[in-house]
Design a binder for these strands. Sequence first.
DNA 1: GCTGCTGTTGTACGATCGTTCAACAACGTA
DNA 2: TACGTTGTTGAACGATCGTACAACAGCAGC
Lengths: 225, 225
Amino acid sequence: MSGGGSPSRTRAARARRPRFERQLPQQRRQALIDATIECLKRYGHEGLSIRTISAQAGVSVGLINHHFPNKNQLIAAAYRHFNSELVGGLQAAVARAADSPRARMRAFLEASFCPPNLDQDALAVWVVFWGLYRHSRLIQRVQRDTYRGYVRLLRGMLAERLAQARAPHPRRPRRRGRPDLRLAAIGLTALLDGLWLEWCLEPGAFRPAEAVALCEAWVEDLCRR
Amino acid sequence: MSGGGSPSRTRAARARRPRFERQLPQQRRQALIDATIECLKRYGHEGLSIRTISAQAGVSVGLINHHFPNKNQLIAAAYRHFNSELVGGLQAAVARAADSPRARMRAFLEASFCPPNLDQDALAVWVVFWGLYRHSRLIQRVQRDTYRGYVRLLRGMLAERLAQARAPHPRRPRRRGRPDLRLAAIGLTALLDGLWLEWCLEPGAFRPAEAVALCEAWVEDLCRR
DNA sequence: GCTGCTGTTGTACGATCGTTCAACAACGTA
DNA sequence: TACGTTGTTGAACGATCGTACAACAGCAGC
């Protein structure tokens, strides 16, 4: 209606709103990844459809296959992004903390039990990705690539925390039954993940601060052994 | 080919293999539920299709809607069965154990870290169900119905275990910082679930016995406080 | 203002989805 | 042996799925 019917380059024709905006591939790819995660949060596994995602991103159905070879590659890219956001956020929180093993561990735990990590929507996203894990080599590869960074971060902090606890009495004999670092890391990871899972499933069951306290108490017990 | 072309009731006609076997609704329903779980183990979320499930059960596509009003009801029934198998198995293990709080707790833990509960296939099934949780009221209802039994079992055992630990010194004042039963149950559940999850994701990372030991050490620490 | 590239659109296609339903057939009953 | 009940089949329906592709159009460079 509002002008522009003529093909001649009148001022009105030039001023009309473009039907779409071209973007750099990198930006568009990221927008599609964000839309994928948003769809997972809103609709769960059913949100993983080309049409749902493209609608969420405000683009046409054909665009996804222009930027990604197929749907699975988009999902894997979204999983990679989601994972690195988590690990990156935790690393940043640790880096911001005071320069002591105890403070770093606390910062790590508090970041783990805060938004955006402690979020029911986030659990919904994780769970769908986990459900794809067994039958998608792409997802398995992303998992292997990113999980390493998480384990290294947690293990490093636990190691320096335990080392500090022993430091005041360097010649004290190692008590029988002191768990090795490997089992300690396994246990802390389990407690952390389990609490995180429980809270997301039933946010009213306990407060995030209680989860942090439970984890810290666990580490304290380890140090006292 | 092999006889029976004639509609007359010859002996060959009567002896021919029936094209299908009628079953009681209850039996057929259970067979469909079993097939659903088997499909989830084999194909993950993609196994949740009417055709896949009916093929697994060896019946036609139409039969499912004869025994279940729709697909979601079948899935919910499968989830209910899967849950009660778990809780029932754990209860049975506890009932078989010696009559002491410590033995019961150990039996519970060992059953938790044994097949069929400790199983990668089982995790794949759980994860798909969890992915449906947020967007299916049916699944939410089943979860609410069955999870209660699990929590009650675990909480009861932990309560008697902690009570026993206090028993020898009934008049000893309650120490500062002793966690209440509520938080203790939350922590044990988290540790248990987290270890179970970790093992299923990476079965080589630790042995089931180590998981049991970690949980028992955690309970021991609780008792000593 | 024109041209070229390429990001973007939207229709079309075949496959598969959940569900329906008329017809079939197994088997208890008389 | 004939009948009636009802568990069972399998074709068919419309909807939706992922992907392909020809046409369109935004925008930089000349």
